[in-house]
Computed example of a mutant assay.
Amino acid sequence: MPLLEISVVPIGTDSPSFSTQVTNAVRIIEEKDLKYELTPTSTVVEGDIDHLWEVAKEIHQEAISTGPERIVTNISIDHRTDKEMNMDHQIDTVRKELE
């Protein structure tokens, strides 16, 4: 299953904080019933590629609607076609290598 990593950064606000944008993004992801992992600097979402594009667009549009004059949305998509993958498998693979 493809993975989307997304981060939203508002620019031109009175505060260096952007936890509101992150909270709004997570709410959107939860409403779509998608599996996700919140990290300190981004959010990783697992799902069908069409759903991932939709959720990325919705997160970006929500962030811009909250008032900042500029939003930078960074996305990265990891989409394997040779075999199935998911977040748990990716993490488990690295942990096994560390043993």
Rank of each mutant, 00 (worst) to 15 (best):
V26I: 15
D33R: 11
I91Y: 14
V72R: 06
P2C: 05
T23K: 06
V45R: 00
S76C: 11
P2D: 07
S65K: 10
V22I: 12
E69V: 08
I6C: 02
I71A: 03
W53Q: 02
L34W: 04
P10S: 06
F18Y: 12
V72M: 14
I91L: 15
D33G: 08
S17C: 07
V44P: 00
V94K: 14
L98K: 13
S7Q: 07
K35V: 13
R95D: 11
T13F: 13
T66W: 07
E97G: 13
G67M: 08
M87T: 12
L3N: 03
T39G: 02
T43N: 08
D82E: 05
P40R: 08
Q61D: 13
I29S: 01
E54G: 11
V22W: 00
K35S: 13
K35W: 14
M87P: 06
M87Q: 11
D50K: 14
L3C: 07
V26S: 07
T66D: 06
E30P: 02
T39V: 01
T43S: 07
Q61A: 12
P2T: 07
E31L: 07
E54I: 08
K57A: 09
E84H: 15
I59M: 09
I71G: 00
S19G: 12
E30F: 11
E69R: 14
Q90C: 14
A56G: 05
T23Q: 03
V45P: 02
V8D: 01
I49F: 15
W53R: 08
V44Y: 03
D78A: 14
E37T: 09
I71E: 02
I29T: 02
V9W: 03
L3T: 06
Q21G: 03
D78S: 15
E30R: 15
D48W: 10
K57E: 10
S19Q: 08
M87N: 06
V44N: 00
V72Y: 12
H79G: 10
E97H: 15
H60I: 06
R95N: 10
M85W: 12
R80M: 07
N24P: 01
N74I: 10
N74F: 13
I11M: 13
I91G: 05
S65G: 04
K32M: 05
A25D: 01
V55G: 03
K32V: 00
T81Y: 15
G67E: 02
I28A: 05
A63L: 05
R80N: 09
E69S: 12
E58T: 12
A63I: 04
D14F: 14
F18W: 07
